[in-house]
Every structure is written in C-alpha cells, then in structure tokens.
Design a protein around this nucleic acid. Structure first.
Lengths: 151, 151
DNA sequence: TATTGTTATACTCTATAACTATA
DNA sequence: TATAGTTATAGAGTATAACAATA
C-alpha cells in the first residue's frame, strides 16, 4: 500500500471502473427516460428546472453555451414542458416548468427510483455505505482540476 | 427505511448523485487526456486495445456500430497509434496498438493515476471502501435493464 | 461598454443503408 | 446465405460568431 506502483494500479483501476460505471449510468438513464420520450439532455434540464432559473444560470450549471440553452428551451417549449417568463431585469428570461413539465419531472423521478443500476445491484446496506462516499466524491461546484469546456 | 417513499427518495438521490459524478468523471477524464491530445473516445479505445481485438469485438464492447469502429480505427491509424492486422479468418481485421500506441496507453494510465477525482477527494480508507461497491455496481456484460442502443 | 438571449452556421460524434470480400 | 469491414451519407448534439435589446 506504500508501494507507489501498487497505489498507482489501485487508483488507476478505480478510475477505470468509475468511468465505465459512468458510461453505464448514462446509458441506463437514457434508456429510462427514452420510455418517456425524452432524450437525456432534455431530461437533465427538466430535473434541474425544479425551480425556475434564468437561462444563463442553466448554461452555467450544465456548463454549456448560452446559445445551446436557447435550443434546449425551444425543444422543451415545443413539447409544452417549459415556458419562458420575463425576469425583472428585462434582458433576462426565466425558464419555468409548465404543469405538464412538473408532471414530467415527477415521472422521471419515479421511473429512475423504480428501476436503476443502484437498486438493481446493491442491497440496502451497500447503498448506505455508498452514499457518503458518493457525496464526498461529488464536487458541488463541479468543474474538474483542469477546466471543463464541454457540456 | 421501510417506508417506500423514504426509500424512493434515498435511491433517487443516490442515482442523481451517481449521474452527476458520472458526468464529472467523464469531464475529468476528458480534460486529462486532452493534455495528451486525445478526445475521450480515442482514449477509451486505446485503453481497451491493450490486447489486440477484432473490430467486431470492439464494436460490441463499446456497444456501437461497426461503421463507427472503422472511423475510430482510421483516426487512430492516422495518428500512428493502431494498425490493422489480418485475422486468420480473412474477413476479420484485428486492431493492435503500435509501439507509439502502447506508449500512449501508458501515458494515459499514468496521467489518470496521477490526477483524478478519486485521489483528489477520497483518502486511502475511503478508496478501499469504495472499490468493492464499484465492482458490484459494474456490470461486466454491460447493457442495462432495457437494452442499450447507443455508443 | 458589458450582458442576456437569439440567429445562423459549422463541426463532431454516431448511426443507417448499401456495398465488397470472404465464409 | 450470413458475417466482417468499408463507404457514403444523414442526423443529433453542441459550439462559435455576430447581432439586438437592455443595463
């Protein structure tokens, strides 16, 4: 354990695992929301909009360009899930879930809670052990060591 | 804990956490390999090619179309990291790392081992606790509950 | 002058379909 | 006839740059 090479291998392996799990988790989420007729990026946005937010904020939280948020908002709007409401600063538009949007968000939550890789593969004790580790792993301010550029 | 709603919330929260961490892990990995001049998908392929494999196999392991593997192989070939070698069945081509490819794979391993979100945020004990959980979480045969369609 | 959102556009990743060579 | 890889092409997702309205 004090052998640097061993720690190398150990950590490298963990990272590799985490990356693979990451890919699986995303595919899993994609499959779940596909049943609801949503691509991943729209589903993520809906989940983030539980409380109305300026488009700018969404761009930051998703770390993608403002122009892309316009596109997202258009798609969500077409589906009747979101509407733009004017901010007090009149340059700003808030994105808010419509009634249908709120219903969709609830369906997403329910679908994910019912069927996901964590409940599928871990029992209650293991989940309790995992929770604090994931919380520590999670950087609330996102953005990695090097800066993140993509969405 | 026996309250279904509570378990709902608990599991839903864990899944959400896992998804966010997944996104971070990917971004983190992307930033790391970007320093080596590689986009994520090429880096993943290189890591998977530690042992030469038929293009078909790679397609399955990455769960993406054969045509895309052709494109991947072309890009890796252009960079001199991989070459196609004929299989015994003459329809088959194996993808094998060149010397430069092996060197690159080692650089990727080293870069990831040196700087990654796991060592950044977890101490040795926590990493030891995390390892078996990740292993259980990881489905070696990939493919979720619903079938995975995308790459 | 700086900032918010929009438009037009282009690029990257990935898939589908049709094709060639081999089995 | 079925399978491995390739080609041509198209679609989705996302970014960049220039722009209008507001601050």
């Amino acid at each position: 354990m004090t052998d640097p090479d061993a720690q190398f291998a150990e950590t490298g392996g963990l990272v590799k695992l985490l990356i693979e799990i990451a890919a699986q988790a995303k595919a899993d989420f994609a499959a779940t929301v596909a049943v609801l007729g949503l691509p991943v990026h729209l589903a993520r946005a809906i989940v983030m909009l539980s409380t109305p937010a300026p488009m700018r904020d969404l761009a930051e939280r998703l770390s993608c360009d403002r122009s892309y948020i316009t596109a997202l908002a258009d798609q969500l709007d077409e589906r009747g899930l979101v509407r733009r409401i004017p901010g007090e600063d009149r340059r700003v538009k808030l994105l808010a879930l419509t009634e249908a949007g709120v219903a969709m968000r609830d369906r997403i939550s329910r679908a994910v809670a019912e069927e996901n890789m964590i409940t599928r593969r871990l029992d209650a004790d293991e989940r309790r052990a995992l929770a604090p580790l994931l919380e520590k792993l999670h950087d609330p301010d996102a953005v990695g060591a090097h800066e993140r550029e993509t969405c």
